[in-house]
Design a protein around this nucleic acid. Structure first.
Lengths: 203, 203, 203, 203
DNA sequence: CATGAATGAGCATTCATTCAT
DNA sequence: TATGAATGAATGCTCATTCAT
């Protein structure tokens, strides 16, 4: 009846099929055929929603980015800045199977973004958003720190988090979930002085 | 005369061709045809050296890893531990065109390692080596720090470095070379107390 | 309009192309490319109808078997059992160019059936059908013979016929059409006593 | 030392490798690579003995034909003509695993002979030899039969035997070894009257 | 909105063969 | 005598895409 209620779900089913294949077999195993088969529709239908394969991959990347965006923004509503900060970054680590799959997906798209301007644009947007939010959070948590310091802290925090996710996703069991968590906590302790000032991002 | 003097160069020419294509157009644009054309040999010759495409990619990844390994070990010979540490990590950042290409290459292989056990093995080996070396370096630089602290510092330093390289490679100009360098320096200052103790990785 | 009227002919054109190549150049010269070229369609079209080469060969064998089946059954309608029997078996001999081509085709598929279960199944089916029909015919022609005798006669008749076709197809002119016919007639005379017994190879 | 004692065995090992592959996987699975691997030599060695693949196949066919020739001629030395005749023809049926393999081999080469003049020549030679020998045998067994009758009987006997072998090799278990033997015996009884006339399919 | 026929370029791989050693 | 490097054509097959319905 409502065109939105029938069009969107099918489109989402297709991007979900893409993401499933990316997580399980890698981005280069994504083909229109496989997506159609995974989603249980015909090839023609896939190409009705996404005229080209690049359109399809871009939509899938946008979907996963949007999913991350929403999960992050919902975590920023807490009263304690530091807890929010920690929660957000932990969301980006492959601490359980679901987020491990997401890490593989994000890594795959990030790698392809290196040679795909369209994907690079999406990647740049989400990186800008997250570092902006992290910078704000650091500013709130350490009120007397300069903006530059906060931005530096944000970049370090996000780089280390993504780097940890990269290390975990690109090996198999080299670094455990608890190690990931411990390492990130250690870094946050360094970046966010708790009891007394005198180090970390404060001047 | 010496078979090694005629066999090796050709094999290396082939893996170099692979790495060139990976850096310029991405790992999924690597085909036996393209590699043969880039190296200026016939298709049959490529498959004489590498019976399957996976063999070829694995050899190329091993080559780039070996290249990194040697560059790093040559930097560790300096007298000042902290300088060595800094130099090694800066080597892993895409600070010039050559290292930007290498970052794209390493990122591409890391992403594929997520779904390729053979590549994951190589990745795990090099990560283990580098974190081991970094841990030793932190131990030398901060003599009274526990081994666990040093290992944590090593993981953070490498994760942040690889994360920065990932951010730079997966966008185009989002983060400049000087920003990369500044951010890494800031992190190292945090991890390596200079004048006086009382923070960072010392207890 | 009717999908059958546009789909079937094309599919049949493809199997006919296969059979043409088999008859002229042998089964191992059949390639998807050659079939496409012979049928005047694109490679993709061939593989739209037959996803794999084995599917294509199986369909072609089924087609030729079906053709034989129909020719045989149309011959069994005559009033004189012995004439029918003779006519059917003569149909299986390479007595003219068309049936010589068919003999080469059938021989090629029979040989491949030795190492292809799918083709062996088709071969077994047609052999069972023909020997069944021949057994019935012998039973009608020699009313007081036991079923076992009739089955033996049927097996001998078909084996000798196929053997003659094999000899003719696998040499070039070693045995002439008239020799084939004469030999088969002689065998039928032996298997089907007409007026009086007492012949065989004795004068 | 003796060139013959070192050259011939290796050459024979190669043709044996060909025949093994033909029996197990079919003639079109024979490749220089596979033959070299099966015989445990290098590709270059195979092509040292057989410059082209056709040379190799022709030699292999000649070998198998020679093997049959020798087995047959050794059986013709017996004192009872009828027994010799029966023994020779039974040798051509796939009554045990070894002769089943040989039947697949002979069938494969016969089918290829349909489009290969060189193989057809060998096939024609062996057919001529065997029918000649059979004609002689029938002449001895039925002294007062004309030569033409004997030749007809020979053709029928060989055609039926080869046809039975074809039926057995091209299906899997459709006709059992004992059925093959029984059918051939029945035919021979028909072609070679022993005590009294009055047989054929009538009881 | 959805299908599937049709296309032809592209893929990794196998192949027979040549040649220098 | 025997090897293996090198070649390039050919293989079956998958692919993204176009188009008519």
């Amino acid at each position: 009846m409502d065109p939105l209620s029938s069009r969107r779900p099918r489109r989402t089913a297709l991007t979900n099929a893409v993401l499933t294949i990316v997580a399980e077999r890698g981005l280069d195993q994504v083909s229109v055929r496989e997506v159609a088969a995974t989603a249980g529709v015909s090839i023609g239908t896939v190409q009705h929603y996404f005229p080209t394969k690049d359109d399809m991959l871009l939509a899938a990347f946008n979907d996963v980015v949007q999913r991350i965006r929403q999960r992050i923004s919902s975590l920023c509503a807490g009263p304690h800045v530091r807890n929010n900060l920690s929660a957000v970054l932990h969301q980006l680590l492959p601490l359980d199977d679901e987020r491990a799959a997401e890490s593989r997906i994000v890594l795959a798209f990030a790698a392809r973004a290196a040679t795909s301007p369209a994907l690079a644009g999406v990647q740049q947007t989400i990186l800008t958003e997250i570092t902006g939010a992290l910078t704000d959070a650091f500013a709130l948590a350490a009120a007397h720190a300069t903006t530059d310091r906060c931005r530096l802290a944000a970049h370090i925090a996000l780089a280390a988090t993504d780097g940890l996710a990269l290390h975990a996703a690109s090996t198999h069991g080299w670094i455990s979930a608890s190690q990931l968590s411990t390492t990130l906590d250690f870094l946050l302790d360094m970046l966010l002085p708790t009891t007394e000032p005198g180090y970390a991002i404060t001047p």
